[in-house]
């Protein structure tokens, strides 16, 4: 019961902060709301005993990526584009309809599968645990389908680095 209460509290915070990220006209406030959202997600991962994912969520998303986002906002010197929450125009209506449809799809899907109770960590995942060690063993085990994709990602990064260098490099002449 206690975990269910915690889940609903976290879920409310996550949804509200996510909505504030999109609706806020001040980009810096939007970015900070996104940080709050990411941190809430990290706590949710912890309640599912996925410690490693929770830590990565904080370090990579709430930390590194959000710093980058804030840097970009400040470099571009984006000001507030008007007061309060954006709420006019057909685009807004469409966005709301789209968001509601997707939400219904997600909620409907998980209710169909699991009923109304919030998701809990399964006995199996609790036993293996979400530690860095357990994930490391799973990631590098050639019997499991994660090792090969992991290797492919290194190529993806190489391609991204070379591409970014080519596009941003000044001409040598």
């Amino acid at each position: 019961m206690g975990s269910a209460i915690i889940f609903w509290i976290l879920a409310t915070i996550a949804v509200v902060t996510a909505a504030m990220t999109v609706l806020n006209r001040n980009p810096v406030r939007g970015a900070l709301m996104l940080v709050a959202h990411m941190l809430t997600l990290a706590v949710m991962y912890l309640t599912l005993s996925a410690q490693f994912v929770a830590a990565v969520q904080v370090i990579v998303y709430a930390g590194a990526i959000m710093v980058l986002v804030l840097f970009t906002i400040m470099l571009l010197n984006l000001g507030v584009t008007g007061g309060g929450i954006r709420s006019r125009g057909a685009g807004f209506v469409l966005a709301v309809i789209g968001a509601l449809t997707l939400t219904l799809a997600m909620v409907g899907g998980s209710v169909w599968r699991h009923g109304l109770a919030p998701m809990k960590a399964t006995a199996e995942s609790l036993e293996r645990g979400g530690t860095a060690q357990a994930i490391g063993y799973a990631l590098y085990d050639p019997e499991l389908p994660w090792l090969f994709p992991f290797e492919v990602i290194s190529l993806l990064l190489l391609s991204a680095i070379v591409g970014a260098l080519v596009l941003t490099r000044r001409r040598s002449e």
């Binding site: 997707l102 899907g109 599968r113």
Partner: peptide, 9 residues
């Protein structure tokens, strides 16, 4: 699985 809204989406 595809008869659920989630699977369809």
């Amino acid at each position: 699985a595809l008869h659920t809204p989630m699977g369809l989406a």
